[in-house]
């Protein structure tokens, strides 16, 4: 089974003023995404974020975003796995949203973006609750040479929170972009998974991750629709790895993490 651990609802809604050449294909909000997934043999996608790309979303925007994902997960129950988006700056609201979407809803993971560094103390109760609920935390990470957004996490932030919460599973989304540094940062943190989504299909990435972390600590994601499923899939299909290693990265590890 191939599971994409990292997809989003299209952030751009389109405009009547768009030239015909730029109009987005739409057969429902994520239906078009599944059409492309079908072409590449992707069985399930983990979906998060609504159409807002506010770096510091309010609890209302968070709830609206999760409602969008919830609706899509209900529309395609065999294909879409919802990940609950949170802004941990609003701690009580975040814990309540975890109850609503995960404890009492269909969501199977948590998605954190750029609202706060993931090693902030507000994350401690969230990490504990994630472990209780048995869901992973998918945390965006990047290391940008010209400077990150003010509250954009790097791999070192993931390593720090993972150290404090060994029972919680963290997925280091994008592996920090600068993946050579990212993988080396989490070598010793057994509860952190490397993740392949979003960067260019640079040769050697998956091979290095497997060499340092092992094939059972790497998961595949695309960051579609901003990214091409094809370019992202090539990071595994094109890698010099065994078929068993590729199968684990493409879906086996996520099946285990999600308890499917």
């Amino acid at each position: 089974m191939v599971i994409d651990c990292h997809t989003h609802i299209q952030g751009y809604k389109g405009s009547p003023d768009d030239p015909p050449s730029l109009k987005l294909r739409r057969t429902g909000r994520t239906g078009y995404l599944l059409e492309f997934a079908d072409r590449l043999g992707i069985d399930k996608i983990c979906l998060s974020l609504g159409t807002s790309r506010d770096y510091y979303p309010t609890p209302e925007v968070i709830a609206e975003s999760n409602d969008m994902v919830w609706a899509e997960a209900e529309r395609y129950p065999d294909r879409i796995i919802g990940f609950c988006y949170l802004n941990p700056r609003y701690l009580q609201e975040s814990l309540a949203e975890m109850d609503r979407c995960i404890a009492n809803g269909p969501f199977r993971g948590i998605k954190l973006w750029v609202a706060i560094h993931v090693d902030h103390p507000n994350l401690d109760p969230i990490a504990d609750k994630a472990a209780e609920l048995g869901v992973p935390i998918l945390q965006h990470t990047w290391i940008k040479i010209a400077g990150n957004l003010p509250d954009e996490s790097e791999p070192r932030h993931v390593a720090a929170i993972a150290e404090r919460h060994p029972q919680t599973t963290f997925i280091m989304a994008h592996s920090g972009g600068n993946w050579e540094r990212g993988y080396k940062t989490i070598i010793e943190h057994q509860n952190v998974y490397g993740e392949l989504a979003g960067g260019d299909p640079e040769m050697g990435q998956a091979e290095m991750a497997v060499r340092l972390l092992g094939a059972d600590r790497l998961v595949w994601g695309s960051d579609a629709p901003g990214r091409s499923f094809a370019s992202q899939l090539s990071k595994v299909t094109g890698a010099d790895l065994t078929e068993d290693e590729k199968a684990a990265i493409l879906g086996g590890n996520m099946e285990r993490i999600l308890g499917l």
Partner: peptide, 9 residues
Amino acid sequence: YYPESAILK
């Protein structure tokens, strides 16, 4: 880059 990227696209 992995050449598979362009081929799959």
